[in-house]
């Protein structure tokens, strides 16, 4: 199946992954998972809970060790293998080249820090100039993600904002340094349908305006269908199917993919 992963237009992929990963108590979480993300593309990584989707995100950021896991293989990012990068090099990549939007907005925000402080911290990780200059950029960014761009908002604590606002703050934090690749790990699962829609629109806009590639990890096929260019289906640590999003939804080839799609009656009625 590896041929389906090759870039269709022949240009060099932004990210090319070929990975296996283990947890001490769960060997074979990822079993030679291979896929590419092209520059400016939105790739969906689809699968049930427990299929290893989040592990892929951690592997790419080389943060699997924090959770006690280990990985092997190659992660080619912009032509270099970051699987072999040092921790110091990875620190330069995380947040600047590759960003993460995590799953549950409220537990991903630090309850003891003000929103402004958390944004400032994300900015400070890769900037050395005066905060005043960075702050203006961040206020513009907040406006851009439809958040109140004022001091009062920056002074709030995470417990004082809504879930939707919290998710937007996380997205703003992730795009501060205009990364080439954004990894969004189930970013909408905690949101109500309307807010989901708005966040998905925001991703599409960021992708368009900043030419930012997005690895969109989700079990929600509906959002995948509306947002993504291509999709890869993950089952028990293996990629079972990969291709253009429409093609997968209209003509799923793998039985697992079929089962996933069959579970969505709406989609079947309106192909």
């Amino acid at each position: 199946m590896s041929e389906t992963l090759h870039p269709m237009n022949g240009s060099h992929p932004l990210l090319s992954v070929s990975l296996s990963a283990n947890y001490p108590n769960r060997p074979g979480v990822l079993d030679n998972v291979c896929f590419d993300v092209k520059s400016g593309e939105i790739l969906a990584l689809v699968g049930q809970s427990g299929s290893g989707k989040s592990t892929v995100a951690l592997c790419i950021l080389k943060l699997l060790e924090v959770k006690g896991g280990s990985s092997s293989g190659a992660i080619m990012f912009q032509g270099r293998d970051i699987e072999k990068a040092t921790e110091r090099e990875m620190r330069g990549i995380r947040g600047r080249e590759i960003s993460l939007v995590p799953q549950s907005p409220h537990s991903a925000l630090n309850p003891a820090l003000r929103i402004g402080t958390q944004l400032k911290e994300a900015w400070r990780a890769h900037a050395e100039d005066k905060w005043e200059s960075g702050k203006q950029g961040i206020l513009r960014l907040l406006e851009n993600v439809d958040l109140p761009a004022d001091e009062a908002f920056l002074r709030r604590y995470p417990s004082q904002v809504s879930v939707g606002q919290a998710q937007r703050v996380l997205i703003a934090m992730a795009v501060i340094h205009r990364p080439r690749l954004l990894i969004a790990d189930e970013p909408t699962s905690a949101l109500d349908l309307l807010t989901q829609r708005e966040v998905l629109d925001l991703f599409a806009r960021l992708n368009r305006e900043l030419n930012m590639a997005i690895l969109y990890i989700s079990h929600d096929l509906l959002s995948v269908a509306s947002l993504c260019h291509r999709a890869a289906v993950l089952e028990r640590g293996r990629i079972v199917e990969c291709g253009a999003a429409e093609q997968i939804f209209e003509h799923p080839s793998h039985p697992y993919t079929k089962r996933l799609i069959d579970a969505l009656p709406h989609l079947q009625r309106t192909p």
């Binding site: 950021l61 600047r96 991903a108 925000l109 630090n110 911290e121």
Partner: peptide, 12 residues
């Protein structure tokens, strides 16, 4: 989660 995110943002 927030510590993980801070690391993912490149925080040393």
């Amino acid at each position: 989660e927030f510590a993980l995110l801070a690391r993912a943002s490149g925080c040393p």
